[in-house]
Design a protein around this nucleic acid. Sequence first.
DNA 1: ATGCCTATTGCAACGCATTGCAATAAGAGG
DNA 2: CCTCTTATTGCAATGCGTTGCAATAGGCAT
Lengths: 157, 157
Amino acid sequence: MNIDGSLPEPWGSIGDRLRGRGLRWTPQRETVIAVLADTVPGDHVTAAELVERCRARDGRTVPSTVYRTLDVLEDLGLVRHGHGADGREEYHVLPAGEHGHLHCSSCSATWEITPRQAEAVVTALKGAGGFEIDIGHVTLVGRCADCARDAPASVRR
Amino acid sequence: MNIDGSLPEPWGSIGDRLRGRGLRWTPQRETVIAVLADTVPGDHVTAAELVERCRARDGRTVPSTVYRTLDVLEDLGLVRHGHGADGREEYHVLPAGEHGHLHCSSCSATWEITPRQAEAVVTALKGAGGFEIDIGHVTLVGRCADCARDAPASVRR
DNA sequence: ATGCCTATTGCAACGCATTGCAATAAGAGG
DNA sequence: CCTCTTATTGCAATGCGTTGCAATAGGCAT
């Protein structure tokens, strides 16, 4: 937050953007925005984690309000939700560019997808039927190069 | 099921396979197997749907037992679980080959991934870092060729 | 400052999925 | 057929996420 107590953009102007759409600026939404403004841009957090952080700022925070606020912010393009390897929700704050994840079901590690990998996958699907994948929406599961080398043919989940 | 009341393979021999591993053949598992044997091989069903079908056969069926049985069957390779576009669990019965799904967030349709698309994605990731994707584990979300043509640049979720 | 319209909230209930634990029952061995 | 080991079950509780509804409260217009 800035020295005068205001939030850095784009968070500071959200009140106006909401009102401009006939929506409202409420204390509950202010709490969610404050939490989001505290996260590293491009970072990702689970929905449950965001609820928890809101409760830390305001003990009266109720989950459904947070989830609904996140929906609204998603419409404004300020966050994007996706699903982790286990299907749970996670939010990308201020998403920029192709941002996604790979999860190795063998060693349980998760990585960011590199621009090169994203490009490769997007192009592959685009070329084979024209599907435009939103690579950030789901975590791609499989085995990393290391694990694949160690146990080439075993069955996994 | 066969005319003598037995189940077609591989379902009929599951009791033996379980016992061979030191596991047990129980009435509850029999119910789950009967339900699975009734589904089209290669088909996919949500976990909740399977629980429901089990309840139809045996009203005393309890969810946790079904989920645990599915875990065991997954170890045997008879089913594979994945996550739909909304993150919910879905099971592929008797999975064969690369089997996955694409979901269009614009028109909400879902398709099977074609062998050609699967091949393209697998190869793309393999080539860009060596990651071996399990393409059946998650439903890939994005926009189908038709929707992409209609609204090329809009923001979606 | 007041009133009105309706977006938003809080609550309660529901659905899906998982987990710990004590009681039950497979099934192998004698 | 009986015993013993322990895999499995059922239950209850927990966590995540969504939804319907009545009450509340933004905020625009007067």
